[in-house]
């Protein structure tokens, strides 16, 4: 599925300083029954966001209009648990294009990259600085620069670089995906399969 190209994103951010945010919180299993990829953003963080009677929980960050933007900032070990890509779909569908944390679960990171969300891993100290900047000013903007591989807190100029492999970087900047790449090497795959033990 095509996604928006990612180059430089300048946006305010939504802070969620909770550790081990698992994919069951991002999208509970009972909302995985669709056979199409649409509307998942409505149920993003469903049980943290809404009461059982579907009224919004006032103290949850997504229900606080002060916080907006295309960047979600989470505590360490973000996206642990289930492999459901629906978690990344929900985050994308809600309007986020970048998730920042000091540590991501592997499958969530892969899923995000595959659908056009940039997961940015920063040091624990820099993550703290981001949370503090947003606390001081909820509209504080961050600049995520994929070509340069840097993230900057614009108000203070504090900057850190982040890692991403050059293949995925190229894909995200051009809106390409792995399926295109794999289709282009099908002959090699056929040759390999012929030699396969199984």
């Amino acid at each position: 599925m095509a996604y928006d190209k990612f180059t430089v994103l300048t946006s305010s951010a939504v802070p969620m300083p909770i550790e081990n945010v698992d994919t069951d919180q991002i999208i509970p299993a009972r909302f995985l029954k669709a056979t199409e990829r649409k509307g998942f953003g409505d149920n993003l963080f469903r049980d943290w966001r809404y009461n059982a009677d579907n009224t919004p929980k006032r103290d949850f960050v997504l229900n606080n209009p002060i916080y907006t933007g295309k960047i979600l900032v989470g505590g360490k070990n973000f996206g642990s648990g289930s492999s459901r890509e629906h978690a990344a779909w929900a985050i994308y569908d809600y309007g986020f294009r970048c998730v920042i944390s000091s540590f991501f679960a592997d499958i969530f990171k892969n899923n995000s990259l595959n659908i056009g969300i940039l997961p940015v891993q920063v040091s624990p100290a820099f993550l703290d600085r981001i949370f503090r900047a947003i606390e001081a000013d909820p509209k504080a903007e961050l600049e995520v620069n994929l070509p340069e591989q840097t993230i900057t807190i614009l108000a203070t100029g504090e900057r850190e670089s982040f890692e991403i492999n050059s293949y995925k970087k190229h894909n995200l900047m051009n809106g390409y995906d792995d399926i295109d790449y794999l289709q282009s090497m099908k002959e090699d795959i056929k040759v390999f399969a012929d030699k396969s033990v199984y």
């Binding site: 492999s83 890509e85 499958i107 899923n111 595959n114 659908i115 995906d177 792995d178 399926i179 794999l182």
Partner: peptide, 23 residues
């Protein structure tokens, strides 16, 4: 043996391969 996302399910169906950095 490991879990994958739906984009990767599509990769395996269409090419019997996925793209993974070696852990």
């Amino acid at each position: 043996a490991f879990g994958i996302g739906t984009s990767e399910v599509e990769m395996v169906l269409s090419s019997q391969c996925i793209m993974q950095p070696k852990p």
